[in-house]
């Protein structure tokens, strides 16, 4: 089942990438997608039926909009710190408790964190997420967890879990 899903996804990706509907191109794309899905199918997202639940696409759209907004904010934040003569940074690695369970949702959360203001995911050990933060603004774990993950966690839960 997941081999089939990966095949369809990679074939669509090929079509978008080449943007050409001639039979030769379709054949090459099908072969390439087949090889990809045979090699990497076993690493793919397990519960494929979730692709067919429409409400997930709705939440995905909202998640993307929030992510782009946060991403733009992140850039202005880092640009400000780069250009400021005194360089206002206070870096450190903080530990955050994860509430998401599935592997895929965790990976998406880690990616989102890397894109948001001044934070890079370093590692996941058990249920803890380690994040390098360019400006550690508070000492209280509750508060900074909410600051870093709070914006995304519920949308990622609805979209990917």
């Amino acid at each position: 089942m997941r081999y089939l899903a990966l095949f369809i996804l990679s074939f669509l990706f090929w079509l978008l990438l080449t943007f050409d509907l001639s039979p030769i191109n379709l054949a090459v794309g099908a072969v390439a997608a087949l090889i990809t899905s045979l090699l990497f199918g076993k690493y793919f997202y397990e519960r494929v039926y979730k692709f067919l639940q429409p409400q997930r696409y709705f939440w995905f759209l909202i998640y993307i909009i929030i992510l782009i907004w946060e991403c733009i904010k992140a850039n202005f934040d880092v640009a400000y710190r780069v250009l400021h003569p005194a360089m206002p940074i206070k870096p450190g690695i903080v530990k955050i408790k994860l509430e998401l369970q599935s592997e895929f949702a965790r990976a998406m959360l880690a990616n989102s964190i890397t894109m948001t203001p001044g934070t890079i995911t370093v590692d996941i050990v058990g249920d803890d997420l380690f994040v390098h933060w360019i400006y550690v603004s508070s000492e209280d774990p509750e508060q900074y967890s909410r600051k870093i993950t709070g914006r995304f966690e519920k949308y990622i839960k609805k979209t990917f879990e």
Binding site: C71, N75, V78, V82, M115, G118, I120, I134
Partner: peptide, 28 residues
């Protein structure tokens, strides 16, 4: 933004902060 990312890459003190500037500004 790519220019700012490069300036940050030079100005920031250690590898972790440099990566912050390289990934964020570079990506956007």
């Amino acid at each position: 933004f790519n220019l700012i990312g490069c300036i940050g890459l030079i100005r920031f003190p250690d590898v972790y902060n440099r990566l912050q500037s390289a990934t964020k500004c570079g990506t956007l």
